[in-house]
Design a protein around this nucleic acid. Structure first.
Lengths: 195, 195
DNA sequence: AATAAATACATACGTTTCGTATGTAAATAG
DNA sequence: CTATTTACATACGAAACGTATGTATTTATT
């Protein structure tokens, strides 16, 4: 195994172990020793690769968040129209909150430890995508001429809060449907002509 | 000073000091020694009164949450109609979320440390009030028969994200207007469609 | 090819901070 | 007036974080 591969391997193993541990116990309750020991390393490797504990969480969050953005993009691009894509994206985002990893790491510990999620690289991509979609929808006359950045941020916020609600619920499956229904009504408010 | 008064005084001082420290540095970065020392006490008082560090955060969160509910109630009750009250409440919520104390303590550290916000003793009286308002609006035929808890959570989420956006902005005043306009459009989606 | 330098970790250490266990003075109860 | 409870302070032990240092293995240089 070449050096670069070995380094990448170490990185992968640590992120994977951390991802599991953070999801299960929460960021604060996990020690670096536990993580490194579980993959046959020591804290030396961790501090060398990620700088500090926050750096490790950042790496884990980036990975999950990128997966989420990728999935949302895939879902949106399969939709029949721009409008359907916007909705599908929001719905997909809400549904992803059913994943315990997403709940604990991205929605709870992430914001508390790393700060405002809208400043995260992948979240920004998601927001930019929503903004561009809204711009096009206004151009084609589907949506009212509202400030698109504002609307995009509110939509993302609504979806995020729905996700948090689901994450905290005892019966996530039931809650998802209610959240999606309400989300659809609110998105509908942006539309020019109501059905 | 009587005994009961002195106890209450200790409690007040500790909560106040913790509130300031948590808001400024974040829950994890604040030590119990700092808090107690700043008001001339030791950790003994803290553990005796609040049990542990989480208990102290819980007390602080309860206090802030109660204040928020009180303020939101006052604002909503001044509105001319239920519908206007709902909107005024949303706007008030945005403004309250501009408060760094609210952002850091109630919205970030609170959920991460104390878990499911909907199971907090006081959680979100604000939310409960929004739910009741929506129930009444559906009853009077102003709003579509949507699940009110879902709608309330999405509205609050949208308002919160708007607040975070505004707080991070260089020109908050400009951004407020855009955010409120987009918020109004989205709330409008809940309204009964008129043929 | 030999040596210098950088890399990728491991190991050891000091510091901080939490929670608990114990001590104590003052207030209240009996 | 004594006994007990309360409301703290003090002392102690245990994690866990970050840093400083050590070391073997690559990579670069001449």
């Amino acid at each position: 195994m070449k050096r670069a591969e070995k380094v990448e391997d170490t990185r992968r193993k640590l992120i994977q172990a951390a991802r599991r541990a953070f999801a299960e116990k929460g960021y604060a309750a996990v020690s670096m020793d536990d993580i490194t020991a579980s993959v046959g390393l020591t804290r030396g490797a961790l501090y060398h690769t990620f700088g500090d504990k926050k750096g490790l969480l950042q790496a884990v969050v980036d990975q999950i968040d990128t997966e989420m953005a990728s999935h949302a993009h895939a879902v949106a691009s399969e939709a029949a129209s721009l409008w359907d894509g916007l909705i599908a994206e929001g719905v997909a985002y809400v549904k992803m909150a059913l994943n315990p990893e997403v709940q604990r790491i991205v929605l709870l510990d992430g914001p508390a430890v790393l700060g405002d999620p809208s400043q995260w690289p992948s979240q920004n991509n998601c927001l930019q995508m929503t903004i561009r979609t809204l711009d096009k929808l206004i151009e084609e006359g589907t949506v009212n001429p509202v400030n698109t950045e504002a609307a995009a941020r509110l939509l993302n916020g609504a979806a995020l809060n729905a996700a948090l609600w689901i994450a905290a619920s005892d019966t996530p499956e039931d809650v998802v449907d209610k959240a999606i229904e309400a989300f659809l009504w609110m998105v509908d408010g942006l539309k020019i002509t109501k059905p």
